[in-house]
């Protein structure tokens, strides 16, 4: 790195850098295809993207196309929470009804 810095200042000419420095880290998600199995590679990539959270960002970005204020975000979060709770309660009710029917038979 010192050699590069000196070259940048114009003091000494640039010299051949170490082999490790030549490989630059790539941005984004990279998946190698081994033995020509494309289906497996695509599956690995899907898993990587889902875990990294980029899918969620893309979904949010696709739904909302304008700037959202922090206050608005809080309101939306509260609505989502209430909806989730309501859906859970509904699920429980359905499960109980089914159990009763099965036991009744």
């Amino acid at each position: 790195m010192q050699a590069l810095a000196r070259a940048a200042r114009g003091i000494l000419p640039a010299t051949a850098a170490a082999p490790a420095a030549r490989v630059q880290q790539a941005r984004g998600i990279v998946v190698h295809v081994k033995d020509g199995n494309l289906e497996r590679a695509l599956g690995v990539m899907a898993r990587k993207m889902r875990s990294s959270g980029i899918e969620r960002l893309i979904r949010a970005r696709s739904q909302i196309h304008h700037h959202v204020k922090d206050s608005e975000k809080r309101v939306l979060a509260r609505k989502a929470l209430m909806q989730r709770v309501r859906s859970q309660e509904l699920g429980k009710k359905l499960r109980d009804i089914l159990i009763k029917k099965i036991r009744g038979q």
Binding site: V30, H32, V33, G36, A41, M45, H66
Partner: peptide
């Protein structure tokens, strides 16, 4: 025949809450 694809690279650039989007 095997596929010619050797590497899959997703280069999508997505800002982390970047600039303020224009008003809808």
């Amino acid at each position: 025949e095997q596929s010619p694809v050797v590497l899959i690279h997703d280069v999508t650039q997505l800002p982390h809450n970047g600039c303020r989007l224009p008003k809808q």
